[in-house]
Every structure is written in structure tokens, then in C-alpha cells.
């Protein structure tokens, strides 16, 4: 298996539960390819970090302001 073939299955590899026909081959590739091993682990971390940080937080005061504006517009429409 080449690194390109491995990368094509990265999405499935990130989903631990996915049934992948070639899982054994992919895992075999991981064992002997540091490049793909690092790519997999750091991509997994990338997703986790984006998921666990609220980078576009909606503050409560703005939230209330938006609610009022939305409901006023809906009533008028």
C-alpha cells in the first residue's frame, strides 16, 4: 500500500468504528510508515482541538439582542 492509498482512507481511519474492508492492510501500512502514522495522529488532534474550543462564541448579551431583533422581524413579516 502506498501513502496516497492510505490517505484516501484517512476519513475511515479516523472513525475507529468504521468497517473498512482493508483495515488490516491500512494498519500494516501504519506500522511501517512513520509519515502516515504522524499524519493520522496529528489530523486526529486537529479535529479534536477544533471541536473542543468554542472559537466563535456567542456572548449572552449579543444573543439576547439577536433574539429580540429576530422575533421583531418575524412579527413584522
Amino acid at each position: 500500500m502506498t501513502c496516497t492509498e492510505f490517505l484516501a482512507q484517512l476519513d475511515e481511519m479516523l472513525d475507529q468504528d468504521a468497517a473498512i474492508p482493508l483495515r488490516a492492510d491500512l494498519e500494516e501500512h501504519l506500522r511501517c510508515c512513520e509519515h502516515c502514522e504522524i499524519t493520522l495522529s496529528t489530523t486526529r488532534t486537529t479535529i479534536q482541538i477544533y471541536r473542543s474550543h468554542e472559537i466563535y462564541e456567542l456572548p449572552e448579551d449579543l444573543r439576547e439582542r439577536l433574539h429580540k431583533a429576530i422575533l421583531a422581524k418575524c412579527r413584522k413579516s
Binding site: 504522524i38 499524519t39 496529528t42 488532534t45 472559537i55
Partner: peptide, 23 residues
């Protein structure tokens, strides 16, 4: 760039600094 990452990238930056980096 295939340098491996720190085992705990979260520990490298404070919350707001991390949010800045991600944005």
C-alpha cells in the same frame, strides 16, 4: 511538514491564545 507534535498541544497555549491560533 511531518514533524511530530507535542503530546499535549493544549498545554502549550492559554485558552484565548489557542482560540486566536485556531481562528
Amino acid at each position: 511538514d511531518l514533524a511530530d507534535w507535542s503530546p499535549d498541544p493544549e498545554a502549550l497555549y492559554g485558552q484565548s491564545e489557542m482560540a486566536d491560533i485556531l481562528r
